[in-house]
Each structure stands twice: as C-alpha cells, then as structure tokens.
C-alpha cells in the first residue's frame, strides 16, 4: 500500500556500504517491485489506452455503471484471494452463484416469502462451500480437481432445477440493486469497496490472516506451529460458498430474473482477477489490495474494449493472454524477491 506514495529514499541517500557477502536489496526495491505495483501501472496504462480508443469511454458514471457487470465476480474474487493464499483453489463459485440463485428463484416461485427464499439461497451457499471443504479437508482430495467436479455438478443441478426457463417476477424492492446509488456510486460497488476494506483488514491485521499466509507458505510448518489448518481451510471454502450465493442474489436483483446459465464461464474471470492482482498461484503470497486494483483493471479493459466496439474474439484472446502473462509476471517477481 505504502509502496506508491513513498518516494525512494535510497536514491537520495546513496548507501555507501562495502559489499558484503549478500547485500540486502535496497528498500525501494522491496517496496516498489511488487505485483501490486505492476497491477497499478497496468491500471493507469489501460485507462489511458481506453480513453484513446473511444471518445465515449472517459465518463465516470458510465464506468461505474458498467462495473456492476463485473463487480459481482470481483466480490467473489476477494474471498478467492484468501483461498488461493492458503494454497488451495476454488473453481466452482460461478456454478455456486447459478445454483444458489436458481434455488432462490424456485423457492420464490413456490410461494415462499422473500426473506425465506433469500435464506434458502444463502444456506445453499453454505452447504455447497462445506461440501467442497469436506472433500478437500476431510477426504484430502486436491481442490483443483474437486472444484472442477463440483463446478460441473452445481451447474448441472441448476440446469436440472430450472431447466432453460428464466425465473423472474421478484418484488420491485428486490430488483435493480445496480440502479440504487449512494451518491453517484451504485450499491454493488459500495459493497465491493466495503468488502475489500474488511477482508483487507482481516487478512492484514488479524491472527487468522497471518495464519492463512503461513498455511499457504508451508502447510507442514503451519501444522507444527499449532495452526488449525483444516478448520481454517474449511472456513475459507464455506466463506467462498456464502459469498458466491450473495453474488448470485446480486445478479438476480440486477437482472430481475435467474437462469441456470447465469455467470457461466465466470470462473475464468474470477481467477483472472486474483492472478492479475499478483496473488501467487502456489499460495503464501498475495493481497486484497492487489485483487482490488485488478478488479478495476478488468473493468477498465472489458468496458474499454466493449465501448470501442472491439469484437468479442479479440476480447477472448486478450483475457486468455492476460491470465497467462499475469501469472508469469507474478512468478518472476516472487522469484526475484526470494533471492
């Protein structure tokens, strides 16, 4: 965080030290050469390029409105960041969004009152998260393949439940969360910012946050240090399920209807946001700040290309390339800093 505003003290007072065996890296390097810095630079560059690409881009109201199409995924990505820092991964949140939203829609259509329907959806999120957590922490299956299985399963169940139908007709107080504003900022964006601050603090200053990093760095060491690894991981998967169901409800509110294909393929978007934010794919490193910046980077890139009428095939290509390039860069930076 402070990497941005702190100037580089080492340049003003050159350290004249006789070279010892292994000189520590200058402080400015430690502070500046971080994945988050790269994300920030990319964010600035992307904003400039997007403004150049289309005269219609540089309009804060428009960008904020467009951001609501991606912010639901960004909210999930915040929790996914914690999961990945702990050395696991969850590829199923997008499918969890769809299934919990379809359960919500079905419950509502069955005549249940709205609070109950919402409760059903949140409960479904908890159960799905716990299911993933059970498979990973109790049966000790690798999360990467487990969550591919549950990704197909949850989306399939949503399809069985809702067919190809669009379920809608929700009461008007529920519909249109993205058009409710706090000042000029849509409510989903406020939720995202608030969630970022809370999770940032959680990860940064609580004991649990530090334990998550330790688990990701070395699970065995964490166990020896008395950290309840499995309980924390279980908690993270449940949190992932819960936040997915909240995001699913936000989509339901935004669209005023739900369908089984809601958020399909969004697992790529979520993983992309976390990776762009500089979280290390093998765990142990990463930050909420990075994910926060990366979410805006994605919003700027996607919105910029769409408003410039750039064909979707170029967009798919760019997203795929970005994912790969971002992991390579993050890896390179961490490899440097480890030396």
């Amino acid at each position: 965080m402070n990497s941005i505003d702190k100037p580089t003290p080492s340049t003003t007072t050159p350290t004249i030290v006789v070279r010892e065996a292994a000189a520590p890296r200058p402080r400015w390097q430690v502070l500046l050469i971080r994945p988050e810095t790269v994300t920030l630079v990319l964010l600035v560059v992307a904003t400039i390029v997007a403004s150049r690409l289309s005269p219609f881009f540089a309009d804060l109201g428009f960008i904020l409105e467009s951001s609501t199409y991606y912010i639901e995924f960004a909210i999930v990505a915040l929790v996914l960041t914690l999961v990945i820092i702990s050395g696991e991964i969850d590829l199923s949140p997008a499918a969890q969004m769809a299934l919990s939203a379809c359960l919500f829609g079905t419950a509502f259509k069955a005549g249940l009152p709205m609070p109950v329907a919402i409760g059903v959806s949140l409960l479904a999120g908890l159960v799905m998260g716990a299911f993933n957590g059970f498979l990973v922490t109790v049966l000790r299956l690798p999360s990467i393949i487990v969550t591919i299985g549950t990704l197909i399963l949850f989306r399939g169940l949503a399809q069985v439940l809702a067919g190809d139908k669009s379920i809608g007709g929700f009461p008007s107080w529920f519909v249109g969360i993205d058009y409710r504003m706090v000042g000029i900022v849509p409510v989903p964006v406020v939720v995202f910012v608030a969630a970022s601050v809370l999770l940032g603090l959680f990860l940064g200053i609580t004991i649990y946050g530090r334990q998550i990093y330790q688990i990701g760095t070395s699970e065995i060491a964490a166990i020896h240090a008395g950290i309840r690894v499995r309980r924390i991981k279980m908690g993270l998967f449940i949190a992932s399920g819960l936040v997915s169901s909240i995001a699913g409800l936000m989509v339901a509110s935004r669209l005023g209807s739900v369908r089984y294909d809601l958020a399909s393929g969004a697992e790529l978007t979520m993983v992309l946001i976390v990776m762009l934010g500089g979280t290390y794919i093998f765990g142990g490193r990463g930050s909420i700040l990075g994910t926060f910046l990366a979410a805006w980077l994605l919003v700027i890139i996607a919105t910029g290309m769409t408003v410039a009428n750039i064909a979707i095939n170029a967009q798919l290509t760019v997203m795929g390339l970005l994912l790969i390039v971002s992991i390579i860069m993050t890896n390179a930076i961490y490899a440097r800093s480890q030396r």
């Binding site: 669009s166 989509v251 809601l262 393929g265 769409t306 979707i312 967009q315």
Partner: peptide, 9 residues
Amino acid sequence: VAPASAEAT
C-alpha cells in the same frame, strides 16, 4: 457487435 455465447446476461 455480438457476445461470444448466447448466455442470458
């Protein structure tokens, strides 16, 4: 302009 998939959103 067209999206890549015929998904609802």
